[in-house]
Every structure is written in C-alpha cells, then in structure tokens.
Design a protein around this nucleic acid. Structure first.
Lengths: 261, 261
DNA sequence: TAGTGTGAATTGCTTCACAGCA
DNA sequence: TGCTGTGAAGCAATTCACACTA
C-alpha cells in the first residue's frame, strides 16, 4: 500500500540533526525514501525486542527475516542513516536502536492530542502503546456534552472549542482525528490554527491543509476492501482454473505494524 | 504507504469475473497494481457520495480532485477495469460505482470474524461502517472469561477455541486480529485452520502464514513514528535554515482513507 | 571468512502528452 | 470541442551482485 502507500512526492530531505557525531552529519543530510522511514519504525520495534532478549548483535539477514523484508533492502535502508554495521559481524543492537530512534525524532517526546472520543477514539485514548513509545496523549477533545468533563485513562476530555488554547499550553505536536467524517475538516482547521503540523486522520474524508502540514490517513474500510478484492480474485481463479490465478511468493508483509489491546 | 504501502510483489492477476459482459472480460483478465486497488476503494466511496447528491456524471478531473489524486492517475486506474467513460462527458456515476464494486468483489457480502475484543477490538466491533459497507461482523472471539458470553452490538462473544467451528458455520472469509501481540500467531493459525484466507492484523507481530493466505497489517505506532520523523525534520530545518528543509507540494494524501466513530 | 555497503540493473508506479471519439 | 484512454517518458523503489573490510 501502502499505502500506505502510494504518495506523490516520496522522499524527504533530512537536515543535519542537532547533536553529537560529526562524521555522520554529512551522511544524514540526504534524502530518505518515505518507504524506508516506515520500515525503520518496524526495525526499531524488533531491535527493542532483541535487546530485551539480551542480544548484542544481529546480522542483516536475521533482522530482515524477523521483520519480513529481504536483507538487501534492510541494508540499503540502514545505509540511508549511516554506516553502523560491522563487516563480518552484523549490527550492534543497542547502537542501531539508538540511531534509528534519533533519526525518527523519537529522542524527544511528542505530545499527542486526540479529537473525537467516540467509539474508536475511546479505544485510542486507552491504548497504552502510545505513551510507552514516546507519544503521551496530552489532551482529549469532543463536542458531546456527555463526554466533555469525563476522564479517560486519567485524561480530562475537553471541549473542541478549546483546542487552540490547550494544544498551545501543552506543546502538542501531533493531532489525531477520530471524529465522524463531517466534523473532521473543522477539527483539522482548529488543530492547524493551534500550530499542529502533523495529523493522523481516521475520518473518511480528504483533509484540506496548508502545505506545511503533514497528514496521514488510516482507513480501515479501504483495508477490508483490498482484502475483499483478494478473496474475489481467488474465488474467480478457483471457479475458472486454467486461468493463471494467484501465485508467486505472498509474504505476510504490508504497510506496517500494529496496535494490540 | 501506505503503506500502505510497500510490498514485495505489487501487482495481481485478475481472472475473468463470472457474470455478465463479454467485451470486458478480456480487459479484466489483466494485472491490476496493488496501489490501484487501494485507490479504487477511495473512488468508490466518493462515487457513493456523489450518487447521494444526485450527480449523474463526473469527469476524471472532478473525481480526482475530490479524492486527492491527479486526473491522469485516476484515468489510468480506471482503465485497468475497463473503459466505462464517455469521451467529452465523463463517467456515469452509477455505472462506474457498480463496476468498481464488482472488481473489488463487493457484490457479494463478506462475513468478518474479529478476534480480540479488548480495547481496540471493542471499538472495531462497534464500528457501524463495516456492516454498511458489505462487511458484516459475523463473529467475535476472545479468551477473557469476563468477555466471553457478553454481547457487543448484538453479537455474542465466543471463546477462541471455537473459531474453527463458528467460522465454518457462518462462512467467514475475512479475519481481523486485535489481540495483544503474543497471542496473535496462535489466533492466526486457528483462523487459517478454519479456512480464512484474508487477515487484517492489528497486532504488532509478523504473522507466519501459508502462501495462499493474504495478510494486511495496520500499525498505528508506525504511523505516529512516521509523523514524528516529519516533526523532527521540520524542527531541524527551522533550527538550521539554509539547509534545504521541507518543501515541494505536500498533498494531504497518503495510504488510504478512514473510520469515524 | 562472513557479512556490510553500494553502484548498477530491474521492476513497477506515476506523469506526460496527445490521438481519437462522443 | 472537451474529455477519455493510453503509449511513452520519467522516477522511485527494490533487487542483484560484488568489492571491501573487521
């Protein structure tokens, strides 16, 4: 996907990061493909697990297998952030974990605001994975008088009209929109006015934003429809064998990773 | 990229669909890029909205603008499913809607089973968008004794051990896994044993499946991390102007679409 | 010697630009 | 005349294959 897939301008320029390391700086000042950025996040999670298990090093082959990519792609991905491998040995788990964290900007926390605490929003607010991964939910908003004023996971639900003030106060950098479709654009405008420049959109609408604002869309209905397409294709292939149906390696690898309960 | 995004083998073969139309059959028996399949689902939703508003026809330009793609891409996408446009006029909304539905296999309902009705799973079970879009949730499963036996949205939560029997009985074709990571593989194996060949995975693990099974992964942590990367990049660009920071058109277009409350 | 880092080849997606039809 | 449908060009991402080094 894809999709997660498929975007117009796919690579981004990574300016030299403030911080240590001079040798790496020149290297970092290059373009990292968007697809690579998404995979780095996946590698990062696996490196965390490996570290917990006490592994000191991994080879590209091991890490690639564990994350469902091929090893050449993995090495190329890592080469975009610099050369931290040891030839003949592999990568030092802790060091690589740290480098990826730095590259993704996870070395400082990012406060997240969630707008819309209905069905899905409520689940997102209660998802413990965010805080643990450096994305503390700092504010919740809704318009429903039954919801405004309650606490979810210890966080007060405030009225949407206060978005600008509250986000500014708490240094929110990322907004998540989990409202019904018709409300999403207005909420988005509020977030943008509050200075938020990155938005994760769960509402089934195309958001209009100024060009400096980055939007990612998550659409579960589309995911299901893509799967439905595969079901249909398979059925047709079974009904009419002889036609070259499904085949070729079908790795269980797609857009990205996950969220448990 | 969307992923949604980045997959190994990207295009699929579409065998001739059973059903009417002989002229189209040859056309349909070709490969449709995965990226196109995902966008077709987006066009489909917009066509539904246009139909509700009473529109009879749309031009590629209008439909493209409304869905956030460029018109050449849209026309090429539609050309994969056949030639249903009228030169000088545009596309007939109802006919195109119907064709895309058929291509995606949405002309017959697909029963969905959801495993894991914790935080996220509960939200998914309550999401009204599925049933309305041809994906009725036909079964819910969990292992928690406090959950097994309750009803959510009128659907009984059953024990995971009954997956095989219940899925077979109800003709489930798509499974959604919203369990904690460690439980996901075992649940996946159960679904596969029950004959499910398409799985939407919300757990943060790489599922091992036989090659005929299609898996799509949705990982909210990865989405946030990709956004975090953009925040970091932007900050660095501001801190060090002169370096060529962000720029170029940044369309609010990514993997795919959405899910309201 | 095992395994990284990377130029070069390849594949597949996107965009262009225009011929052709209603 | 206006807009579709599509070959061809242009790009981005993946994969190959091997020089290189710890």
């Amino acid at each position: 996907m894809t999709e997660n897939d498929a975007r117009g301008d796919a690579s981004v320029t990574l300016p030299p990061q403030a911080g240590p390391s001079g040798a790496a700086a020149a290297k970092l000042a290059r373009s990292i493909p968007e697809a690579t950025v998404a995979r780095l996040a996946v590698y990062l999670r696996m490196l965390g697990e490996l570290a917990e298990q006490g592994a000191e090093t991994v080879s590209s082959e091991e890490l690639a297998t564990a994350t469902g990519v091929n090893s050449a792609k993995l090495r190329k991905d890592l080469s975009y952030i610099g050369s931290y491998g040891i030839r003949g040995v592999g990568y030092e788990v802790a060091a690589l974990h740290h480098q990826i964290e730095r590259t993704l900007g996870l070395d400082h926390q990012q406060a997240v605001a969630l707008v819309g605490v209905g069905n899905l929003g409520h689940a997102l607010a209660g998802y413990s994975g965010f805080g643990g991964r450096g994305f503390p939910v700092a504010a919740l908003f809704d318009v429903d008088p039954d919801l405004v004023g309650i606490h979810i996971n210890g966080i007060l639900v405030e009225h949407v009209r206060d978005i600008a003030r509250v986000c500014a106060e708490r240094g929110v950098t990322i907004g998540m929109i989990a409202t019904p479709g018709p409300a999403a654009q207005a909420v988005c405008d509020q977030l943008v006015r509050a200075g938020v420049e990155c938005i994760l959109n769960f509402a089934p609408v195309l958001l209009q934003v100024p060009e400096q604002v980055e939007v990612r869309k998550v659409d579960l209905a589309v995911e299901l429809q893509v799967l439905a397409f595969h079901v249909a294709r398979r059925r047709a292939a079974e009904a009419a064998p002889g036609a070259n149906g499904a085949h070729g390696p079908v790795p269980a690898t797609n857009g990205s990773a996950v969220l448990p309960r």
